[in-house]
Simulated scan of single mutants.
Amino acid sequence: MNDEAQFGRRIAGLLSERNGQLDPAVLGALGAARRRAVAASEQQFAGVRSPHAAMAWWHAAKPAAAAVLVLAVLFAGDYVNTARTQAVQGEVETALLADDLPIDAYLDQGFRAWLQQADSSSSRS
Score class of each variant (00 low, 15 high):
Ala46Trp: 02
Ala46Tyr: 02
Ala46Asp: 04
Gly47Ile: 09
Val48Tyr: 06
Val48Ile: 13
Val48Ser: 06
Val48His: 05
Arg49Gly: 04
Arg49Ile: 02
Arg49Asn: 06
Ser50Asp: 09
Ser50Ala: 13
Ser50Asn: 11
Ser50Thr: 08
Pro51Leu: 15
Pro51Gly: 10
Pro51Ile: 13
Pro51Phe: 10
His52Ser: 14
His52Met: 15
His52Trp: 10
His52Ile: 13
His52Gln: 14
Ala53Thr: 10
Ala53Met: 14
Ala54Val: 09
Ala54Arg: 14
Ala54Phe: 12
Met55Ile: 12
Ala56Gln: 14
Ala56Ile: 08
Ala56Lys: 14
Trp57Pro: 01
Trp58Glu: 07
Trp58Ser: 03
His59Asn: 09
His59Trp: 08
Ala60Ser: 09
Ala60Gly: 07
Ala60His: 09
Ala61Thr: 06
Ala61Met: 07
Ala61Pro: 01
Lys62Tyr: 05
Lys62Glu: 03
Lys62Thr: 05
Pro63Cys: 03
Pro63Met: 04
Pro63Val: 07
Pro63Thr: 09
Pro63Ser: 10
Ala64Thr: 08
Ala64Gly: 09
Ala64Arg: 14
Ala65Pro: 00
Ala65Tyr: 06
Ala65Met: 10
Ala66Glu: 13
Ala66Lys: 12
Ala66Cys: 05
Ala66Gln: 12
Ala66His: 03
Ala67Thr: 05
Ala67Phe: 02
Ala67Leu: 07
Ala67Arg: 15
Val68Gln: 02
Val68Phe: 01
Val68Ile: 11
Val68Met: 03
Val68Gly: 01
Val68Asn: 01
Leu69Ala: 15
Leu69Cys: 09
Leu69Ile: 10
Val70Asp: 02
Val70Ser: 02
Val70Gln: 02
Leu71Trp: 02
Leu71Gln: 06
Leu71Pro: 00
Leu71Thr: 07
Leu71Arg: 11
Ala72Lys: 07
Ala72Pro: 00
Ala72Gln: 03
Val73Ala: 03
Val73Trp: 00
Leu74His: 01
Leu74Ser: 08
Leu74Gln: 02
Phe75Asn: 10
Phe75Met: 15
Phe75Val: 15
Ala76Tyr: 03
Ala76Val: 09
Ala76Trp: 06
Ala76Glu: 03
Gly77Cys: 13
Gly77Ile: 10
Gly77Val: 10
Gly77Gln: 07
Asp78Phe: 11
Asp78Ser: 13
Val80Glu: 10
Val80Arg: 09
Asn81Tyr: 05
Asn81Pro: 01
Asn81Phe: 06
Asn81Asp: 07
Asn81Ile: 05
Asn81Leu: 12
Asn81Gln: 08
Thr82Ala: 15
Thr82Asp: 11
Thr82Trp: 06
Thr82Val: 12
Thr82Met: 14
Ala83Phe: 08
Ala83Glu: 07
Ala83Ile: 00
Arg84Ala: 15
Arg84Trp: 07
Thr85Cys: 12
Thr85Trp: 05
Gln86Tyr: 04
Gln86His: 08
Gln86Phe: 05
Gln86Val: 04
Gln86Glu: 09
Gln86Pro: 01
Ala87Arg: 03
Ala87Thr: 04
Ala87Tyr: 02
Ala87Gln: 08
Val88Asn: 13
Gln89Thr: 05
Gln89Ile: 04
Gln89Arg: 15
Gly90Tyr: 00
Glu91Lys: 07
Glu91Val: 08
Val92Gln: 13
Glu93Gln: 10
Glu93Asn: 11
Glu93Trp: 01
Glu93Lys: 07
Glu93Ile: 02
Glu93Thr: 01
Glu93Leu: 14
Thr94Ala: 15
